[in-house]
């Protein structure tokens, strides 16, 4: 291990809080998607670090599943953003306040 577990925990907490910061302060839907990616990556860093810490392969396997879910989430998110752009001519999430029916 290149650093004590505390260092990996603080690193992933930093990346996660940057993701939360992006979600709370930005209005662009694409930035939302990227912030969610950052938060998922923070979780993956923790899983892999503790997989090494315990000498057990469970954490690495679980983070593989997390990656698959992140890819699916981005595919859906891109579809939603394109529909949002088609209907509102913008991807500002504070603009989309009306529904069709």
């Amino acid at each position: 291990m290149f650093a004590p577990p505390e260092a990996y925990l603080v690193l992933s907490a930093a990346v996660f809080c940057i993701g939360v910061f992006g979600l709370l302060t930005r209005k662009n839907a694409l930035l939302f998607l990227m912030s969610v990616e950052l938060m998922l990556n923070a979780a993956n860093i923790n899983l892999v670090a503790f997989s090494f810490y315990w000498g057990n392969v469970t954490g690495q396997t679980f983070s593989l599943f997390t990656m698959a879910l992140a890819a699916a989430e981005v595919a859906i998110g891109i579809g939603i953003i394109l529909v949002l752009y088609r209907n509102f001519k913008d991807i500002d999430v504070t603009e989309a306040t009306t529904m069709r029916w």
Binding site: L11, A14, I18, G22, T25, L31, L38
Partner: peptide, 9 residues
């Protein structure tokens, strides 16, 4: 990692 993540937001 932290620097480029900060850059993203």
């Amino acid at each position: 990692t932290v620097g480029s993540s900060l850059g993203v937001v």
